[in-house]
């Protein structure tokens, strides 16, 4: 009873916060996307003085947008899955084994995040070129992103592996479950949130990454951030940036819903028997 009431109060608080959190930024983005090029929108005006869908149609007809969408939305999920696969064994070792140097190993896993962006951009891409990976630009970007975003995956999944309960594993074994069945009942429920978090985070990092995707991909493979950086670079066309980011929101939300659906069902707090 009190919990329901608490939820109600919290809910209204959150809705109020969401107004600041989301509604204002998104409304602004929509308004910016409607600014007609004939008259600039200066800050002293509450609404754009001239509004039209010109930027939307112009952007949609831009020859690079559609291939860029296809590339980015093929690239990001592929990179996310590859990162997940590469990270799982390491995360298992870090999460389930005690060994000397474990903390050091955990710290070293952060290296790709720690190296400054322009150093990675120039020298990591350069190594990829040297290794002859540029023959297939798309695959090279997938690989580069997988390496760069491994730290997220390893850290998130390590936490998940730590949370697998030994008593669940033991119980399953005592009941004579095969290793596979043990994995399914003891590991999968605890890992699911971590896996979905990993996929989501790497997906988003990959879809936002500009420097390396540009160096390796250009001029043949164009990704969305390349278009975004050109809108917000020297030429600074804010309405175009707004249109682009709004175009991106739709497929992103769609993918997030799919991911939630896939990863739902197993909430260990619910499946643990009691309550």
């Amino acid at each position: 009873m009190t919990r329901a009431r608490l939820n109600k109060i919290l809910m209204s608080l959150v809705i109020g916060a969401a107004f600041l959190w989301l509604l204002i930024p998104f409304t602004m983005a929509v308004l910016w996307s409607l600014v007609d090029p004939s008259e600039p929108w200066t800050a002293d005006q509450l609404l754009p003085p001239a509004m039209s869908f010109y930027r939307w149609t112009d952007m949609w007809q831009n020859s690079s947008l559609k291939p860029a969408l296809v590339t980015s939305y093929a690239l990001a999920p592929t990179a996310a899955v590859l990162t997940l696969c590469l990270a799982l064994p390491t995360a298992y070792a870090l999460g389930r084994y005690e060994f000397p140097g474990r903390e050091l190993a955990k710290t070293l896993c952060l290296l790709p995040l720690v190296v400054p962006a322009f150093i990675t951009a120039i020298f990591f891409s350069s190594i990829l070129f040297q290794l002859g990976l540029a023959g297939n630009r798309f695959a090279a970007i997938v690989f580069a992103h997988a390496v760069l975003f491994l730290p997220y995956a390893i850290r998130i999944l390590t936490v998940s592996f730590e949370q697998v309960r030994q008593d669940h594993i033991d119980a399953a074994r005592d009941l004579g479950a095969t290793p596979l069945a043990r994995f399914r009942v003891a590991f999968v429920p605890a890992l699911k949130p971590g896996i979905s978090a990993t996929l989501l985070i790497v997906f988003i990092q990959s879809i936002e990454e500009f420097a390396i995707a540009f160096i390796i991909g250009s001029p043949d493979v164009v990704t969305i951030p390349t278009l975004l950086y050109s809108a917000l670079g020297q030429d600074f066309v804010r309405p175009n940036a707004a249109v682009l980011s709004l175009i991106l929101v739709v497929p992103n939300v769609f993918l997030m819903l799919i991911l939630e659906r896939l990863m739902k069902s197993a909430n260990p707090a619910l499946s643990s028997g009691k309550g």
């Binding site: 696969c85 590469l86 990270a87 799982l88 064994p89 390491t90 995360a91 298992y92 070792a93 084994y97 060994f99 190993a105 070293l108 896993c109 290296l111 790709p112 190296v115 400054p116 150093i119 990675t120 020298f123 990591f124 190594i127 390496v147 491994l150 730290p151 995956a153 390893i154």
Partner: peptide, 23 residues
């Protein structure tokens, strides 16, 4: 343990380690 660390940490050390060395 080493084998398990190879695809994740190993890859990081080999590729990003070289970048750190250059820096």
């Amino acid at each position: 343990i080493l084998l398990l660390l190879m695809p994740g940490l190993g890859l990081i050390l080999a590729l990003i380690g070289a970048v750190v060395y250059i820096a």
